[in-house]
Design a protein around this nucleic acid. Structure first.
Lengths: 159, 159
DNA sequence: TATTGTTATACTCTATAACTATA
DNA sequence: TATAGTTATAGAGTATAACAATA
């Protein structure tokens, strides 16, 4: 370590390019960005941020407590408090005290929240369908299976 | 429309659950979140935000001007200014005036930026590889091809 | 003591609008 | 005029730490 102070100089990459002949893992990263972008655009069309849309989608199956919601969305509880605050202020969700455990708040959709949430969800599905183009049923099923396995692996793997 | 004012009431979903027997499109959304989480965790291991890591990865192939970088990262120019500001303050990148067009700044990696950028990149690839498990070569290639087509479709489709 | 949730605080990220400088 | 980039401003999203209430 003879030159730790010269780090503010420009440097050019020596190794192989990241972008040539992209591998599957790199493709997955790119795809993830594409999906995020679609999600963001459709959300915006419905006057939502991507995170708000995400929140609404998680509530479509029924009310969820803050703690569970935080686990679903992978958010710290204080972050979720803010997200729910803003969504509530916009009339998309409501907090209701649980009867059985008076510490917990059940978060539910308002009719507005349900409407805009499902609209966003459907819009995202439609756009992704377009990106998939015409993919035959066997490949569709194989792909779904592979992705499902990856998601399950991530769930196990979860730190 | 006789009751537009009662939107602040909780509502339960009537339709089919979003989570039962998930389709390919939904699986893609979930996968996207998994990839984002992996990206964020690995970035954090290297003391970067996901966006900073993304920035560094885009610079590994060599210097890029702000405008091109903005297009690559899908960011408004002012957003990019801030991102680059913070990265520069942290000694990860440098701004250099172009000689040919004196309006443009070329953004390049410092040796620090290159090191931590490639480390993050490699870490992400490794973690995604784990999630893929043992996938045989034909399926790997088919998957890569499918995803590549989707990315290309998104590129065309781009508003 | 452990869990649920909020508040206080500090950053990062992002966009819109107005601006400067160069082409 | 058009393009490259910055500044000013405002809001959303996030985490950490400290706190209150309930279990």
């Amino acid at each position: 370590m003879t030159h730790t102070t010269e780090s503010a100089r420009a440097v050019t990459a020596p190794g192989p390019r990241l972008t040539d002949e992209i591998g599957l893992e790199t493709a997955l990263v790119r795809l993830s960005h594409v999906v995020q972008r679609v999600f963001g655009e459709v959300s915006r069309d419905h006057d939502l941020t991507a995170q708000q849309a995400q929140l609404l989608c998680r509530l479509v199956d029924g009310p969820v407590g803050m703690a569970d919601l935080g686990r679903m969305l992978d958010l710290e509880k204080s972050s979720l408090t803010g997200l729910v605050d803003r969504a509530e202020k916009r009339g998309l969700v409501v907090r209701t005290r649980s009867n059985t455990d008076r510490r917990v708040y059940q978060i539910s959709l308002t009719s507005d929240g349900l409407q805009v949430g499902t609209a966003t969800h459907d819009g995202v599905i439609a756009r992704l369908g377009e990106l998939l183009g015409d993919i035959d049923e066997p490949e569709r099923e194989q792909l779904t299976a592979r992705i499902t396995r990856m998601i399950a692996a991530a769930e196990d793997h979860r730190r």
